[in-house]
Design a protein around this nucleic acid. Structure first.
Lengths: 237, 237
DNA sequence: CCAAAAGTGTTCAGCTTACACCCATGA
DNA sequence: TCATGGGTGTAAGCTGAACACTTTTGG
């Protein structure tokens, strides 16, 4: 990869327009029943007092991914969470305050790990994905797109686990899938399918928080999943 | 949507870093046998003489989509082509000359409509997707991602037709799908499937360029496809 | 002892896949 | 007349979907 610079080259970049670039994150969580998104009530202009996604401006010395990670950390105190670039919104007047491009990311976090105290600083609140307030700018579109992407991803990549605690039960996992895909599933078929891939390890423990009988806890086994992929099989549910 | 500006608000944007933003296009074509991409040999620094995607810088007064459309038009002389945003590449050192973000788009064009004379100005050349030179920066990654996206899109949206002339034969369509998905398909099954959706209109004409017997020409019927979608059916091949 | 959630198998329909021969025609 | 690509139907296997009862145990 050539790195030489010459006069012609410098000139090439110098005369071009420069732009404000933001990142905005759709943060998904799951409260054991419903799919949720984390929104903030803006305490700054424009659109002070309205609800929006968490965002921030891209800095000179950071990559887009780093900016998204930084913004997410600032709001949730979490690192090493699932974060995926979604789409870049570049319409001229999407932000009434200035011409700003925004690259949207979506994140999947274990809602239990979320540090409540951080909510206050940003007026953050979890909202049910089925019922949340109108958002500023084009943030509604971003959420729509994120949900569709999440639906697609969870169908053929085992990333749903990112929304659950490390140990979870099959009924919890099914409830998560039902919330994401907005439809009920047959519990026999669901269990049969998910266990057939053999990448979930059943533990000895049971979770009795939802029933007297208790449900076995499982853990996602990354190694087994990778072996599955290597063998050419692909997960689909 | 509030549009008021105040001091606080102006301040909010003013202190932020601004960035160079480019768009780069992966332009796909199909020559009745192989899937191709249109590349240019750079006649400017950096990386003069190396092969790259066609690109350009985003201007102050245009949307990202407009920029992609403009860049595509400049190289091909074509408008109203299928163009879809792919991904935004934002690593710090992806362009050795300066910190430049790039939003990649991919385009599907009918190679017959491509105006050859435009090639010269940009040293453009069609390359077989299976065998093209190493590209500058992260452009190889862009092509990889575009091909995967194209494979996915053509599986469940009838956009493959964008790569063919208005009238095409079933064997031509099958050859296109085989090129995109890099695998041979059974001609009976392919024909059965694609015709079962009933959104292709068979014309009276035959194309005899490939055989003595000749193959019937078909046209994609957008209206019938939309009806299919409305009925809740979805195309998949 | 009973309510409430966890757990378990089988059947049927529809779809995908594999597969082989005749047709039309220009040279 | 023959070589070449166009066009057609059927059977087997697999997968997804539908469906009802037993188990466990805390209250």
């Amino acid at each position: 990869m050539a790195t030489q610079k010459n006069h012609h080259h410098e000139h090439h970049y110098k005369e071009k327009d420069r732009h404000l670039v933001a990142v905005d994150s759709i943060i998904f969580g799951f409260d054991k029943e419903k799919l949720q998104i984390l929104l903030i009530k803006r305490n700054f202009e424009p659109c002070l007092g309205e609800w929006s996604l968490m965002g921030g401006f891209l800095k000179k010395e950071e990559s887009l991914d780093d900016a998204a990670t930084r913004v997410l950390y600032r709001l949730t105190g979490l690192k090493n969470v699932y974060l995926e670039q979604l789409y870049t919104y570049g319409d001229l007047n999407r932000d009434p305050g200035a011409r700003v491009l925004s690259t949207a990311y979506f994140a999947l976090i274990d809602i239990e790990k979320y540090q409540e105290q951080l909510s206050d600083r940003y007026n953050a609140k979890w909202w049910d994905i089925e019922k949340f307030p109108d958002l500023i700018f084009d943030h509604n579109q971003m959420v729509d797109r994120a949900l569709r992407r999440l639906q697609r991803r969870t169908r053929n990549q085992p990333i749903g686990f990112e929304l659950l605690p490390e140990k979870f039960t099959i009924p919890q996992l099914q409830a998560l899938y039902e919330a994401i895909h907005r439809r009920e599933m047959d519990k026999r078929n669901f269990r049969k399918k998910i266990l057939s891939y053999d990448f979930l390890d059943r533990l000895e423990e049971k979770d009795k928080s939802n029933s007297k009988k208790g449900a076995f806890l499982y853990k996602f086994n990354e190694k087994k999943y990778k072996e599955l992929v290597q063998r050419g099989y692909s997960f689909e549910i």
